[in-house]
Design a protein around this nucleic acid. Structure first.
Length: 287
DNA sequence: GGAGATGTTTCAAG
DNA sequence: GCTTGAAACATCTC
């Protein structure tokens, strides 16, 4: 479920773990989320370390852990744990004695709280990067980064002229962090049918609107403090509740008989680029 | 009981 | 060699 802004919200939920020493790691080692990094590796590398960093990159959550500092000892190396939430993953806080339920794959214990990673569908995954490798160095430029220029985008899409707008926006190597609902939102704001081939589209407009939507989504969680008692995690799309209803397609797309917030035409639904897609037949006509 | 779900990877086909 | 699309993954909700 999580896209760009929800991933940022998840990061904030674990934020109270920063500066705290991990005294134990509990895991269900056989679940699929450990298909890249075995649970025992994570256990071996994180116990006794302190969380010193947390950030997001697209849909990826990256938490840095270093040896707990004592006195004047020099800065030690940082090991990064990366979490991808897949479709149904979530992070939440629990009390130090939290008893993991069957879908809580991963519990980092500190003296005062437990940091829990839960994912019932197990499409998510965790990676432990070798010490001092910065995972984001190898990741595509983020949509809101200054290096996400038109020239950069042109270079990446040079051979993709036949691909649909929807498929393009969902390509994480080009638009990291954009997911299904954001892709529909961007298409709607561009007044283009999501199945339109890239050769018929204006890449500068795609760049501009995708940045708008990313910025807008992040802005609406900016004022939210990370929940101190965040034991319930977050619900999908919870942050968009504050968006004026008339301004976002998102608010309407799943309602039965949902209508376009601009022209009030009944939204259409179908599968484009293998994903459920909603669009307005009047504002986004097939060409 | 059946369909569908806000994601990614793999593989086959074009 | 590149792009595209379907299937698979595992479980819950409607």
């Amino acid at each position: 479920m999580p896209e760009l802004a929800e991933v940022e919200l998840a990061r904030r939920i674990w934020e109270p773990g920063k500066g705290q020493e991990i005294i134990a790691v509990e895991s269900h080692p056989k679940t699929r989320v450990y298909r890249d990094t075995p649970a025992r590796d994570i256990q071996g590398h994180l116990v006794g370390k302190t969380m010193v960093d947390s950030r997001t990159h697209g849909k990826r959550l990256i938490f840095g852990f270093a040896d707990s500092l004592s006195g004047s000892s020099p800065r030690t190396s940082v090991t990064y744990l990366e979490v991808h939430l897949g479709m149904s993953g979530r992070l939440f806080l629990a009390d130090p004695e939290h008893h993991p339920d069957k879908h809580d794959h991963f519990v980092l214990r500190t003296k005062s709280i437990s940091l829990v990673y839960s994912d019932y569908r197990q499409f998510g995954r965790v990676y432990l990067h070798p010490p001092d490798t910065k995972p984001w160095d190898a990741l595509p430029v983020e949509v809101l980064h200054t290096r996400f220029t038109l020239a950069y985008l042109r270079r990446l899409t040079a051979r993709r002229k036949g691909t649909s707008l929807k498929a393009l926006l969902l390509d994480q190597s080009i638009f990291p962090g954009i997911g299904n609902w954001m892709a529909d939102e961007i298409s709607w704001r561009l007044y283009r049918y999501p199945g339109t081939a890239l050769r018929e589209l204006d890449l500068a407009a795609i760049r501009q609107v995708s940045r708008q939507v990313c910025r807008g989504a992040l802005r609406h969680i900016a004022d939210k403090n990370s929940p101190r008692d965040g034991t319930r995690g977050f619900s999908p799309g919870s942050y968009v509740e504050q968006v004026p209803p008339s301004c976002w397609l998102f608010q309407h797309r799943w309602k039965a008989g949902g209508s376009c917030p601009r022209c009030h035409s009944t939204l259409q639904r179908g599968t484009i680029a293998t994903r459920t897609t909603a669009w307005c037949p009047y504002c986004q006509p097939k060409t």
